[in-house]
Design a protein around this nucleic acid. Structure first.
Lengths: 211, 211
DNA sequence: CAAGAAGTTTGAACGCCACTCAAGGTGCGC
DNA sequence: GCGCACCTTGAGTGGCGTTCAAACTTCTTG
């Protein structure tokens, strides 16, 4: 197989060494540029040679790291979700009331606006998931992160009697499904949905779910 | 431009005539086969020549009717949604209680199971909407059909005091967003979501929304 | 510090794809 | 039975993702 990905990941293990012009920085730039390009014109219009030109390198070089366009997409999504997972962790650690925390969670999940890069990546991934089992697994894994953190917020809130919940898992599932639907509508600009209207709807639904 | 699509649509206007080997049947078969193929392996793996072979024709011939792969996708979606719109109309006309009607609506909207052809088409379309304004308009139009019918059900139910609703439009929007989220999760098999679990969740949410 | 190993970068080459188009075929109305 | 409009084909075109051998650069080892 290929299995070239991840080579640069284990660099900097020795104190003295550090391999060459540091592959990780190169990869990060690639992902950053790829995400921006996908958000602008969609994955279909993103070509290897086009992206290479934006980066001042060659098409073959990008594939040296990522192996295929599908893998590049997955890496871009992971890259984008990793930063959000950190923000979520910071949110969880903050010392604010559970209901406020829940509200911040909603804001973190929903797209910042139409064509939100992170959500555009999701739409592209969903289309490619059909023919690629690996993508589905990765997807499930990321989703589980959101689910787990939301459940944590709910349980903590219930413990302190700030929130009233019988089944945190069920509530979390339903809320995430609603948020996902609102998000796709917002990114696509369907039915005039905006971040604000989506947020308002999510808040109303949340209030109803936690009584 | 191209503007070949729709030519066969106006056939059979004269009583005697009927143009040749009837283009519509040919187109219907193409769409049917295309939908099946997309549901099986995704749009990316569907090639013009491959589809042509399944149909016993040439790749160029399919494009003679649809103009491009994107247009073929859109036509397939319209074809798929048209049949559902009819079913919805039949549902609206039926003489059953509003709450029962609402429940049937949920069943009609949600995917029949993982890899539901209709929903696979939606996922593919979402990915292509970014770079194609025409697709977004079509999308909005179809969505409006669901929204309008749902609002009708809600208002009629409220009139007869079967359902308790203050703002039918808002309730319909929220319910549709939830249904959409549940649907994508079901088609993709995310988080172990099945039609049954999605339906159960939709019912609980519905009950909460109409008091 | 020399020389081989390991990692990086390139660009030409390949097979496949959506899409075009000119040519020929086919049925209908007159 | 002729002309017109529509239908059908398949070879051709440009561009795509992907492969790969070769050149290049940095690191490691004796």
């Amino acid at each position: 197989m290929r299995e070239r990905v991840g080579r640069a990941v284990e660099r900097r293990v020795s104190v003295v060494a550090t391999r060459r012009s540091d592959g990780r920085i190169a990869q990060d730039r690639m992902l950053e540029e790829a995400v921006a390009a996908i958000a602008e014109h969609g994955l279909a219009k993103l070509t290897m040679s086009g992206l290479a030109e934006r980066l001042g390198t060659s098409g073959g070089h990008i594939l040296y790291y990522f192996g295929s366009k599908d893998q590049l997409l997955l890496a871009a999504l992971r890259w984008s979700e990793d930063r959000l997972a950190e923000e979520r962790a910071r949110l969880l650690a903050r010392r604010v009331a559970a209901d406020r925390k829940l509200d911040l969670f909603l804001g973190l999940y929903l797209p910042v606006g139409p064509r939100d890069p992170r959500w555009m990546l999701w739409l592209e991934l969903w289309a490619r998931t059909a023919g690629n089992a690996e993508l589905r697994v990765a997807q499930d894994e990321i989703d589980l992160g959101w689910q787990a953190d939301l459940v944590t917020i709910l349980i903590r809130g219930a413990d302190k009697d700030v929130l009233l919940i019988d089944d945190p898992d069920a509530v979390a599932s339903e809320l995430l499904a609603l948020l996902e639907g609102l998000s796709t509508r917002t990114v696509l600009g369907l039915g005039g949905t905006t971040r604000e209207s989506a947020l308002a709807m999510a808040r109303r639904a949340t209030g109803r779910l936690i009584r």
